[in-house]
Amino acid sequence: HDTVKSIDIGGRYGWGLNGTEVHCIEQTVSWFLGTRATARDPDGTCGAFKCSEGAVMYLEETFADAAGGGTNNFAIEANGGTVLKRNHTNIAGTEEVSGAGSIGTF
């Protein structure tokens, strides 16, 4: 967070037991290429990719898999951030937009 600019190539994130696996916040700009995020919170909200507070997240050739035990499983969540996708696949979970967030393509 805090205006960091980052690139992740081929990262594997997941299998945590709570919350969101990849979360970018506070004016960051992040590009994920070939990255996979697997979220499995057994009893609450889980998310694979989340973008908040003015951050921008690029997802290219990525995979999101959010299938926890709770009622809210988000493959992508944009709550105040911008998520842009190219050749992205949601294996499980929904896409959620709130606040000034947005999800689109590039």
Rank of each mutant, 00 (worst) to 15 (best):
F32S: 00
G101K: 09
T94I: 14
D43G: 02
V83A: 03
G70Y: 13
T35A: 14
F49W: 13
A64S: 05
H23W: 13
A67V: 13
D8A: 09
N87E: 12
S52V: 08
E61C: 12
G99E: 02
I76C: 01
I9M: 12
A37S: 15
T62S: 15
E96V: 08
E61I: 15
N79M: 06
T3F: 11
A64C: 01
I76F: 03
D8M: 11
E61W: 15
T20W: 03
A92W: 13
S98R: 07
A67E: 15
T94W: 06
I76W: 03
L17S: 04
K5Q: 10
A37R: 09
G93N: 04
A100F: 02
C24E: 06
T105H: 06
G101F: 05
G10V: 00
C46K: 00
I25T: 06
T94R: 10
T38K: 04
E60N: 14
G101T: 10
E26W: 15
P42D: 07
E95S: 14
N18E: 10
T45H: 11
S30Q: 11
W15S: 01
L33C: 07
G11L: 10
G69L: 01
L84S: 11
A39V: 07
G93K: 04
T45E: 13
L59E: 00
L33W: 15
A92E: 14
I25W: 04
T38Y: 06
E60F: 10
G104R: 07
D2Q: 08
N18K: 11
F74I: 01
G93I: 02
G70C: 09
L59C: 06
N79A: 05
C24M: 08
I91H: 11
G14S: 12
N90F: 03
G34R: 14
G99R: 00
F63M: 05
E95L: 08
S102K: 06
K5V: 14
E26Q: 14
N87K: 12
G54C: 08
F49Y: 15
G81Q: 10
T62R: 06
T20F: 02
A48H: 00
G81S: 08
I25C: 05
L59W: 09
E53R: 12
T35E: 11
L84I: 08
T71R: 04
A37K: 09
R36I: 13
D2M: 10
S102W: 02
V22H: 05
Q27D: 14
N18M: 08
I76K: 02
F106M: 07
N79C: 02
G11F: 13
G16N: 13
N73I: 05
